[in-house]
Design a binder for these strands. Structure first.
Lengths: 335, 335
DNA sequence: CTGAAAGCGCTTACAG
DNA sequence: CTGAAAGCGCTTACAG
């Protein structure tokens, strides 16, 4: 049996194709006996409705598009697991779009997504320019495709719902933790590239620093180890530092390595903290203190929110913020 | 303009819808002037062919399914980047299926994939049971859907093409390297769970060990840090060891941490090596010697192979093996 | 080179 | 509760 169609099922079950369709999609509208008979035939024939025909006729695809910047970022990958698990529960298929920065204009990809007739879009890119945001808004409004930002927050507008943690607060808390360690020269190590969430972490850092009447010091470097290692070595030759809050665990670990090579002791001389609570933090020595970001949950809740939107349910809060926590380990003093 | 259809374009360009279709799909069959006119209208109207109608009518979806076990494994994520980049070149969309071990029977997922009418399937799961393989074969033969195994090798059969490196050889080479370090009690640290590729790494290890007339010692533990840390601590209390080949970088790093905590020096006392050349290897201290697996390329070549299959092109070699290399760092002696 | 028409496999009012 | 029929938006022989 290559592919059984609805006609084959209808024939074998001696009903019309309309009844087959109902037995599948609106079982309660079909007499139990008929339904059973039809379902049995479906089973026997291994029938599966052709997704294209279904999508064309119903104008619903039960497919969502997930747009991600770069799969190999640890946070994105784990978020995908959360998204996929919830998508499965609600029977949505996932069309994956990985952005290749700059090469394919994002507009083209979005057009493609519209053509694919997805029922909803999950946007995981953590840097959004105003232009991109406007484009997303256009998609939402013109094409009426529900849209959720996951682990991204667009500061200006609430129009597109988002799910993340309160990064500003997290940045504030982790900085405060280092201040409690008795540190006075605390640097935030952020990225050269602008990411919305890193801006928020920086804002939280600045709030804590200013509250404590310390001098804010933000260093921007690269997420690439080979680059930031150099950079750390150079930069901290003539900078006094006793505390580091890095926007990513891996950057914090990278810093710790450089510190050790310069015979600086952690946490005795410098307290170090990161963000995310990845495997990097656990494998590092000393183990890294960091903000635990519930990244799986962010994906799951984002997908769940999208299903609500696709069902036209009312959303009470357009900006969902999940709880985070501080994980204290050996890279800070923790008195 | 919500969604322009082919009729809108045909009307505005004063041609039939057949001509519009041709202008898009077989431009050479349309008179240049007509074509230009049509294309201009398409541009103006922002027309994109409805993917469902197109799929239904043409019985091709220009979509491939990618089946993965767990997104958050570093190798899978990076492979996805390679897959996506090539998919884009050939205009294929990606339907992502993440397996939730045990919960949803894989058969159901595969049925779903068949229903989705994908043109091809990339299978990234690195453990395949005989039953699963038979099922994949059935899909390939009954439904005629091209299939490629990526970074997985099924030992028994060549029927489904695969792309990977020569893991047996890599296992052999890295073990040999430790033997050259002068090690005699070399353990392979593998996983409790059976993965095809780890079997191959073990086979290579065994070959090198037996060639050198040493005693093979395979320890199986978990990829989870909390578990394997305990396990290492316990196990190596009464086992002499001077060399470790771990099947994954992160396991090797985890071992190095335990060793250091037991005041064992690396590489002086024990040479340690891993597999993959991930960021873990670079962030570790000492930096980890390992087999470099061109994981992005494996994804890219796998996708490329699939496009050939989908175009009915002939495949000369069903088992593509990409080159790997040994990256020597400070966790081995490297005389 | 172009158009009219059939058909892809479903869903969904509309009757009955 | 069930069936006949229109329609979803395309592609593709078949004529011309």
């Amino acid at each position: 049996m290559s592919k059984a169609t609805i006609y084959d099922v209808a024939g074998a079950a001696r009903v019309s194709l309309a009844t087959v369709s109902r037995a599948i999609n609106n079982p309660e509208k079909v007499k139990p006996e008929t339904r059973e008979r039809v379902l049995r035939v479906i089973e026997e024939l291994g029938y599966k409705p052709n997704a294209f025909a279904k999508g064309l006729a119903s104008r619903k695809s039960t497919t969502v598009a997930v747009i991600v910047p770069d799969m190999s970022r640890a946070s994105i990958a784990e978020m995908m697991n959360g998204i996929a698990d919830i998508a499965r529960v609600y029977k949505y298929a996932i069309l994956l779009y990985i952005l290749d920065h700059e090469e394919t204009p994002e507009e083209d990809i979005l057009k493609e997504i519209v053509a694919a007739q997805v029922d909803g879009i999950l946007y995981l890119n953590d840097e959004i320019t105003e232009k991109q945001y406007d484009f997303l808004l256009k998609i939402k409004n013109e094409y009426q495709i529900p849209l959720v930002l996951t682990n991204t927050i667009y500061p200006g507008s609430d129009e597109i719902p988002s799910v993340s943690i309160d990064y500003e607060k997290a940045g504030y808390e982790i900085t405060k933790k280092l201040i409690e360690d008795g540190r006075h020269n605390i640097y935030m190590v952020s990225t050269v590239r602008k990411y919305m969430v890193n801006d928020l972490k920086e804002a939280g850092y600045l709030r804590a620093i200013s509250e404590a009447n310390l001098t804010p010091r933000i260093m921007r470097t690269s997420g690439r180890i080979s680059i930031n290692t150099e950079h750390f070595n150079e930069y901290f030759k003539d900078h006094k530092v006793d505390g580091i809050v890095a926007v990513r665990d891996s950057i914090a670990v990278s810093f710790m390595n450089v510190a050790r090579e310069n015979h600086v002791k952690i946490p005795e001389d410098i307290s170090v903290a990161g963000f995310q609570n990845t495997k990097y933090a656990l494998l590092a020595r000393p183990q890294l203190t960091c903000v635990d970001v519930p990244i799986y949950d962010i994906g799951a809740v984002g997908m769940r929110l999208l299903t609500k939107l696709m069902n036209q349910e009312d959303i009470t809060e357009p900006r969902v913020k999940l709880d985070h926590s501080l994980v204290l380990r050996d890279s800070t003093i923790n008195t």
